[in-house]
Design a binder for these strands. Structure first.
Length: 435
RNA sequence: GUGGCUGUAGCUCAGCCCGGUUAGAGCGCCAGGUUGUGAUCCUGGAUGUCGGGGGUUCAAGUCCCCUCAGCCACCCCA
């Protein structure tokens, strides 16, 4: 028997979570930056809300949904408070609105994790990340159009083409309630024609049965009443204006009267973006809708609102499937190679950082060959070489790695100026922030 | 929560059906190819609780059981 001490079992990320490491993380940064830019230009400001809330914030707004009934990560803290990790983005933002009462229209965006206790699979995690916007305080159908257009444009800017927009109207809160009752009765009369799994849902979630994927059920409900046939005049007018707006902007869409979203606070417009490039089961990459009663249900004044969320993981998965939006190239311009022990590399690298350059260096006093190898792999355009000769003479050998040009030496005191010229593209001065 | 498939070096995998010397490949990593120069090429090297536990056996990466994890699907949704 070996006497070697047993190593502790290595830890792994919890089920359904994942680490995002370089270079993949640079795609995340770029994606979020694109999003922030697009929605920022439309007047949306960043909102940062807590990752957990009193459980009531979520249960109040989604008591009938699986997302809050079965999938919430809830816990008691040391003060016996019943809290929950947020399962979706809208409720937290609505709670913040109620708490702070900002002037309306209040338009915000977020990039934040959501948590749901589900079995993970392709495109589905227990912690996933959403980009989203919420606009509160206006019932203007043009706002519905604006919000949908933001997401449409975002996908388009990434280069995604195989995206379908599906929209529906749930009508006013009264329309919705009446329709749910009507559907429940209608399905109740045909309950034995449904797939048993769907039949079980009729009492609690009749609407859910309508977007069933089971062939037996699909056949049984072809003639089910459609909400679009029984909307109030007010709701019809709203929906008409939303469609007219999308038409005017040239945004293609399909009206799907059976579209049912996972949260049951929606009124009027609901929408979903579906990727046809994904062969996984999870093809919805974004969705949202209007929620005119939500703020009130959280104790605020009657306040209309609309928003969407789109899953970063799924969007990136779709980008991969369509072969668009690759990870940005390496961000390093210079690599310092020092064979004199490393002090020169330390001084030059930090000095160049302070002057705004993007610089890396080798550590551990490796051989020159090894350092050059690393320099090459770093993607740097130029290696700055310091050997004993350079050190003694107060110079640096500047060796281009990407272009076929001879290397040359530059005096240390002229290095910054020389490199600025050499790299040609304008670099920010040390005081400014990077672009 | 239910079901199917898969777990062997950092990564991708072979070996398992037909148990048997020090467990392999490619890529990656490290070093060297004469005295200071990368991406090619050549040579050499390091690294494995064969997911974990139990069992069968003279002997298990290979067979059996349990368990955990990953993937995929149901469900649900981003």
């Amino acid at each position: 028997m070996s006497e070697s001490p047993s190593r502790p079992e290595p830890f792994k990320a919890p089920v359904g979570t994942h680490d995002v490491l370089p270079p993949e993380s640079s795609r995340w940064q770029a994606l979020i930056a694109r999003f922030a830019d697009r929605v920022g230009r439309a007047g949306y400001g960043l909102v940062q809300s807590p990752m957990f809330e009193e459980i009531g914030v979520f249960s109040r707004v989604g008591e009938g949904t699986d997302v809050v009934r079965k999938e919430m990560y809830d816990f008691l803290d040391k003060g016996e408070r019943h809290l929950a990790l947020r399962p979706e983005g809208t409720a937290s933002v609505a709670r913040a609105f109620v708490q702070h009462r900002p002037t309306t229209p209040w338009k915000v965006w977020y990039a934040a994790p959501s948590f749901r206790y589900e079995r993970p699979q392709a495109g589905r995690y227990r912690q996933h990340h959403q980009l989203g916007v919420e606009a509160l305080g206006s019932a203007d159908p043009d706002l519905d159009v604006e919000v949908i257009a933001l997401l449409w444009d975002f996908y388009a800017a990434l280069g995604l083409r195989q995206i379908e927009l599906v929209i529906n109207s749930m009508g006013t809160a009264e329309d919705r309630r009446a329709h749910v009752d009507r559907i429940r009765l209608w399905l109740g009369d045909r309950i034995d024609q449904l797939d048993p799994a769907d039949a079980a849902k009729v009492a609690d979630h009749p609407m859910r049965v309508l977007d069933s994927k089971r062939p037996v059920t699909i056949a049984a409900i072809v003639d089910a009443p459609r909400i679009t046939d029984s909307l109030s005049p007010e709701a019809v007018a709203h929906f008409d204006r939303v469609r007219a707006g999308l038409d005017a902007l040239g945004i293609p869409y399909r009206v799907e009267p059976r579209l049912v979203r996972g949260l049951d606070y929606y009124t009027h417009t609901t929408f979903e973006f579906i990727s046809h490039a994904l062969d996984a089961a999870q093809s919805t990459i974004g969705g949202g809708g209007r929620y005119d009663g939500l703020v009130e249900s959280l104790g605020g004044p009657p306040t209309p609102g609309i928003g969407f969320g789109t899953g970063i993981e799924r969007v990136l998965l779709t980008c991969e499937a369509e072969g668009v939006f690759p990870a940005p190239a390496a961000a390093i311009d210079l690599y310092v190679v020092d064979t004199t022990g490393g002090d020169a590399a330390r001084d030059i690298a930090v000095d160049l950082h302070r002057h705004g350059f993007r610089v890396e260096r080798a550590y551990d006093a490796r051989s020159m060959k090894s350092q050059m190898k690393t320099a090459d792999r770093s993607g740097a355009r130029i290696a700055l070489i310091i050997g004993s000769d350079e050190l003694a003479a107060g110079i640096v050998t500047v060796r281009p790695l990407r272009e076929d040009q001879p290397q040359r030496t530059v005096a240390r005191e002229h290095l910054v100026a020389e490199l600025r010229t050499l790299l040609s593209d304008p670099l920010p001065s040390p005081s400014e922030d990077h672009p």
